[in-house]
Nucleic acid binder design. Sequence first.
DNA 1: TACAGTCTACCTTCTAGTAGGTAGAATGTC
DNA 2: GACATTCTACCTACTAGAAGGTAGACTGTA
Lengths: 195, 195
Amino acid sequence: MNNLPTTSDSILSCARALIIAGGYNGFSYADIADVVGIRKASIHHHFPSKVDLVRTLVARYREEAEAGLRNIELQVADPLEQLRIYVGYWEACIADASAPLCICALLAGQLPVLPEEVGLEVRAHFRFLSGWLTSVLERGARNGQLQLASSPRAEAEAFMATIHGAMLSARAYDDPKIFGVVTGPLLERLTFAHS
Amino acid sequence: MNNLPTTSDSILSCARALIIAGGYNGFSYADIADVVGIRKASIHHHFPSKVDLVRTLVARYREEAEAGLRNIELQVADPLEQLRIYVGYWEACIADASAPLCICALLAGQLPVLPEEVGLEVRAHFRFLSGWLTSVLERGARNGQLQLASSPRAEAEAFMATIHGAMLSARAYDDPKIFGVVTGPLLERLTFAHS
DNA sequence: TACAGTCTACCTTCTAGTAGGTAGAATGTC
DNA sequence: GACATTCTACCTACTAGAAGGTAGACTGTA
């Protein structure tokens, strides 16, 4: 049993925190070295280049997100409840400031200046998330539990966009509650016909 | 009559394009110098520091946005039509790639690493925009034209968040159409009861 | 002995910003 | 009208520090 984080884990989680604060160009190897307590050169041993580091970071983020979403489906079968868990997860992350923004949403804003490898990971996350939301909404609509005003795909894209925008707003207002203000009615609306 | 842009105008519009691509840390004075065709030092003559430049830039963006929103109210009185014009404006900007993202939405993602003066401008834009949307929705609800599922304020925040998220999605998918896919139903929903 | 992990010491390039100067237009003042 | 002055807009040349990255030595462990 070994739960001590490896140095490369520490580097990755530190870089994740820094990237959430200011994106790809908002941090440097020196910043990470200061926090982790090793020298810049040692980071290069684990991640030869910044692109390697960030690609790995986003790829891992993506894996975790995909695993998390699949896990939601294992825990509960109810589509509406699945959406609630997903939204609640972010609400908690934002409230305790542990991860106040989706890394990929943040990086999407900087896509034109991102290294291509990183950009590909970011785009892949958008596709996966919208795909997952589409399937959940579709199931909810099929079993009559959810009321969709347009196609599952369009509703899913709108859902995702609203979540991402709400994260930005929470940061802009420096108020975690705004995320709930925006996302609460979002969920309600999908079941309005039954209330 | 003189409509030639001054050098400082050229610097500002160039910086605006660069900041839309990659945010505050995504461009340098050297980048601007290359495009505008003057030397780095000459930019410092017009804008002593990068903070001056970006603060001026965002302040001007904000003025233009506020003037634009006020102008919409002068052109049409109908709240729903006002929202349509607002959304249509962005749809056009994204479609012709002239301004595929709201500068303040983009910068909001980087707020923690932004100079304070710039951050204040960004937050002010969020407040103004959500205030404007709140007042438009409120009027629409009062005259019975719009159907709000929650408070005008909450609906306005959700509206704004969805717009911002849709901009991110359009960039992530590299597909301007996604903005319309998301925002179309957004407007429809507000009038659904009457269709 | 092999090697992973870390170090010191360095390199190159980019960064914002400064110092000091020049040409020319505008503005006084005699 | 002629002059000195000041201002504007730009320049070349430079700085200090930060960026990402490299080379090679050291150290502990298998």
